[in-house]
Design a protein around this nucleic acid. Structure first.
Lengths: 264, 264
DNA sequence: CGGAGAGTTGAATCCTGTCAATTTAAGTGG
DNA sequence: CCACTTAAATTGACAGGATTCAACTCTCCG
C-alpha cells in the first residue's frame, strides 16, 4: 500500500479533467494516470520493463469522458477494448420500471475486452459514474499487445478470475447480508481494490459516487442507504464527507461484513 | 428443444444411481449421460465427430456421488477438472452464522476447471445438491483434451462467458427484483439452461432441489419462498409437485420476471 | 435570485424474516 | 404391517427491516 506523490490523476493540469462534483477532494494517495493498470497487473503476475513500457504506451488512447456517458451500449459489440485510467465506471442493468442495478465497478486499471476477444454482445451497459479518463484501444492494437506481451496476457487472465470471484461475492453480498453488512462489505472491498492501485492512504480513499449509485449497487433504496451510512458513522466505523471515505475501525468493519479479501 | 428418448440418466440400470428423494419422477425429456456436455458445447460452437468422441471418452471418469457431498473444498486447489454429467451441484458461500448463499448452479454439462487452468484456490465450496454423476478429469488429461480439440476449447471459452453473464444476472436478480419476480426469473433461467441440454419437454422439467436450496439461491427465507411458490401456483403460472416443474404460462412468467434469455 | 442535484429526515406501509407448530411423505426396524 | 423417525413442505402469528412518498436542507451554479 505504498503511496506515490507524483502528479495526480485529478490534477487540474491534466486537460479536460475538471472536477464534476462541487467539493474539492484532497489529492492525497493517488498515482499517475498510466500507473493503475500496471500496478494492478503487477499484483497478478510479474511484469518486466518492456511490459510496463507497452502499458504506458496505451496512454495515447486516453481521453476524458463526462459523467453519465455510456461507454459501451447494451447489445453492442465493441470493436475496441475499454480501459479505465481514472474515475469510476459501472456495468448496469436496467428494468422497464427504470430501476437500475449496478453489477460491477470498473475502477482505474479495470477494463472490458469482451467485444475484442470474443465478439459477443453485452447484456448490460457500461457507464461512467464519474468524470473518467478512459482508453479505447482498437482491436488490432489490443491483440497485438497481448501477442507481444504474454506476461500481460497472463496477468489479465488472472484479473479476470478476480472479476468472476467478485461477481460471486456480490451475489452473496446482496443475497445474505443485511443492508448495513452489505454496505460495510462494499466499503471493505473498495479499500482493497483501490489499495492495489495505490489509491488508499491511511485507511482513506476517494469515493466519488453518489448515494444513489451506492444504493443501486447494493440493492437498497437511497433513503435506506443514507440511514445505513449514518449508522456506520454514528458507530464510529467510518467517516464520509466530501467524497472522502475514511475507515476508522477497519477491524470492526471487516468483522461486521465478514469480509475476506481472498477473492480479489 | 428436441427430445431424446434413449436411456435416461436416472435409469436404474446406471449403477450407484438410486433415487435420493421419495417420489418417482417421470423419465421424460432426458438424454443419455454423456450427452449434456456435448449438447451444451455444440450450442456455443460447432463440434465435429472427433470432438464428440473425445467428450464421450470422458465418461470413463464418471462416478456417482451422494447428495451433500463436497466436490471441491474452499481454499483448495483441485488437480482435476470437475464435470457434472447428471444432477445438480452448486457453488456455495457460507457465513459464520451458518447462513448459506448459492452463487451458481452446475447442471449437467457444466464444469469447473479453475484449479486446472490456473492454480487459484476457490473462494467457495462446490457441493452436490442432489445425487450426481460427476467426472473428475485429471489435469493432464484435461489439458490434453483442450490441446487436441481447439473447437472444444473455444466452445468452453464461450460457455465461460455465459457463466459470467449469469453471475451478473444473479446480482441483478437478488438486487432489484421482488421475491416473486426473482423466483420467476430463476425458473425461466433453468428452463432455458435445461432446454439447451434437452431436459425440457412441453415446458416441463425436473427440479430436484429442496425449497431450502431454492431459498438459499434467491436470498429468501424458505418460509417466504414457500409462499411465493404457492402464489405462483395460485396464479396458474406454474405447477410444481414431486420434483417436477411445469411452466403453465411461459409468456406471463417471463413478463413477470422481465426475463431475457440473451445472456445465456 | 432561482434552479438543479445531492443529501437528509419523518411517517406510514408492506415485504420479508423469525419463531413455532403442524402436516405430509418416506424410510426404518421390530 | 405398523409404530417410530426424519426430512421436507406448509401454516400462523408477530416483529422488523426496507421501501415509498414527501418535504426540506444545503451547496453549487447560471
Amino acid at each position: 500500500m505504498e503511496t506515490f506523490a507524483t502528479a495526480t490523476v485529478m490534477d487540474p493540469a491534466v486537460p479536460g479533467f475538471a472536477r464534476t462534483r462541487r467539493h474539492a477532494a484532497p489529492a492525497a494517495g493517488r498515482s499517475r494516470p498510466g500507473c493503475a493498470l500496471a500496478r494492478k497487473l503487477a499484483g497478478f503476475g510479474p511484469l518486466d520493463e518492456q511490459d510496463r513500457a507497452a502499458l504506458e504506451g496505451l496512454t495515447g488512447y486516453v481521453r476524458p469522458v463526462e459523467r453519465h456517458t455510456v461507454l459501451v451500449e447494451q447489445d453492442g459489440v465493441a470493436d475496441h477494448a475499454l480501459i479505465v485510467f481514472a474515475g469510476f465506471a459501472s456495468r448496469d442493468k436496467h428494468r422497464a420500471s427504470g430501476r437500475r442495478q449496478i453489477v460491477a465497478y470498473l475502477i482505474p486499471g479495470d477494463l472490458c475486452d469482451r467485444g475484442v476477444l470474443h465478439d459477443y454482445p453485452l447484456d448490460h451497459t457500461i457507464e461512467a459514474l464519474t468524470h473518467c479518463l478512459v482508453a479505447k484501444v482498437p482491436r488490432a492494437a489490443y491483440l497485438d499487445l497481448l501477442g507481444r506481451h504474454p506476461r500481460i496476457a497472463l496477468a489479465l487472465q488472472r484479473a479476470r478470475l478476480a472479476e468472476e470471484a467478485t461477481a460471486h461475492e456480490w451475489v452473496a453480498n446482496v443475497g445474505m447480508r443485511s443492508g448495513t453488512e452489505r454496505t460495510a462489505h462494499l466499503l471493505c472491498e473498495l479499500m482493497e481494490r483501490l489499495g492495489m492501485i495505490g489509491q488508499v492512504t491511511d485507511g482513506q480513499y476517494d469515493l466519488p459516487l453518489t448515494q444513489v449509485d451506492l444504493a443501486d449497487t447494493l440493492g437498497l433504496s437511497s433513503v435506506h442507504l443514507n440511514r445505513v451510512l449514518q449508522a456506520l458513522r454514528r458507530d464510529k466505523l467510518i467517516s464520509l464527507r466530501e467524497q472522502r471515505l475514511r475507515i476508522l475501525a477497519p477491524r470492526q468493519l471487516r468483522a461486521l461484513a465478514e469480509f475476506e479479501a481472498g477473492y480479489l
